[in-house]
Every structure is written in structure tokens, then in C-alpha cells.
């Protein structure tokens, strides 16, 4: 399976990466597994910003094909071949 991860705004700035393609032999993985893979591949600790105690932290939005994972199955949301994952901390200012 091949999936595309897009980092936006402050997360992109922090990681210095805009987009990352992950290729795996699996048919599917969870968001939690994806975070482990990304941290290992990118080689920079960042998942502490996204999860805590086995759950997703509030503050960074993770969309799978445009839907907030909190409305799918949170950290256990299944990601399949061809999915696009977007991650960004939204701006709250006006």
C-alpha cells in the first residue's frame, strides 16, 4: 500500500517536510501505527505533539481524506492504500 502524508503550517515548519509518501507491504494500518512509522522514517521526534497516553492529543488536526479522525475512530482509524492524510495545527486568531 502507498499513502501520502501532508504536513501543513507550523508542523511543516517544525519538520521541514511538506509531504511524505509511505510504502508498506500491509493492506492497512492505524493512525497510531502511521505515527510510529513517520517518526522513525523522518528521524525527528514530533509525535509527542499529537498523542499522549495512547490517545490523540487535541491541538493538531489529522484528516484522513478530508475527514477529522476524531469522527472516524480516533487513533485507531484505519488507513488504506491511496489515502491522503493531512496534519496541521489550525490558527485560532482573528
Amino acid at each position: 500500500m502507498k499513502i501520502k502524508v501532508k504536513f501543513f503550517t507550523l508542523l511543516k515548519l517544525y519538520l521541514g517536510i511538506e509531504e511524505y509518501e509511505v510504502e508498506l507491504d500491509n493492506n492497512s494500518i492505524t493512525v497510531n501505527q502511521l505515527l510510529d512509522i513517520l517518526e522513525e522514517k523522518i528521524g525527528k521526534k514530533f509525535t509527542f505533539k499529537l498523542r499522549e497516553g495512547g490517545k490523540l492529543k487535541k491541538g493538531v488536526i489529522i484528516l484522513v481524506n478530508g475527514k477529522n479522525v476524531f469522527h472516524i475512530n480516533g487513533i485507531n482509524t484505519i488507513i488504506k492504500d491511496g489515502d491522503v492524510i493531512s496534519m496541521f495545527p489550525p490558527g485560532g486568531g482573528g
Binding site: 496541521f88 490558527g91 485560532g92 486568531g93
Partner: peptide, 8 residues
């Protein structure tokens, strides 16, 4: 919404 150089 905005933050720094960014917004949505």
C-alpha cells in the same frame, strides 16, 4: 483563523 504566517 490565523496564527503567525499561517491560516485557514
Amino acid at each position: 483563523g490565523l496564527n503567525g504566517f499561517f491560516g485557514q
